[in-house]
Amino acid sequence: MTTSFVKIKNAAKSFGNLQVLKDINLTVDRGQIVAIIGPSGSGKSTLLRAINELDPLTSGEVWLEGVQINRHLPPRQYEAHVNQVRQDIGMVFQHFNLFPHLTVRGNITLAPRMLKGLTEAQANALVEEQLTKVGLLEKIDEYPSRLSGGQKQRVAIARALAMKPKVMLFDEATSALDPELVEEVNMVMKQLADEHMTMIIVTHEMDFAASVCDRVLFMDQGVVVEEGPPSVIFQNPVEERTRNFLRKHLARNGG
């Protein structure tokens, strides 16, 4: 049985005269993993950031498990509503965005302690659980500046998971990493996939998308050009634009 879990309806967004998203529809079922690929400037990050209202849509709807995220409400109520729904949406950024003034423990416990009122003991148990999951328990009391890029991103994932989100958004999570550090982050994401975490992944890593994702969306110039299972998108794309993009991408990255 599948239920549509994340639903984006007729999403459109403009920055001034520039239309970056044009009538996009997307549904993601519980436990599904969807990759969004496309050239830079295609709107894929904007779409991802619209899901948790970081870049609100100009028009259209975003739903998570029967709750509309981008409801039109008076400012005060809107704030409260958004702060509430964001707790269910984990996000991982290209540049990690760990808090440099807090230790790994502080980074991970900040939001759960403030928003869920965990006791110190509960928070400590939570950190240990999440850090074990990403294999970094020994770094619990380090500051982010002492971690490698790959370790930082794994901590950032642990930090997002600590809120027990219903869906995880990855915005080019490995793009800023040295090539030899990409794999350790991919491993953590694969592990999440095995645990049936619902994930939406904006990525340039076609191999990773092909091996992990249930569905791939190819976006260009603010529209979804083509979507389907990775076997179709990567082996037999129907659209000319998709073929062009993949060909260029392969040429640049040597397969």
Partner: peptide
């Protein structure tokens, strides 16, 4: 990015 990270967690 610091503000964004904090806000996306619901702060």
């Amino acid at each position: 990015g610091q503000r964004e990270a904090a806000r996306t967690m619901g702060l």
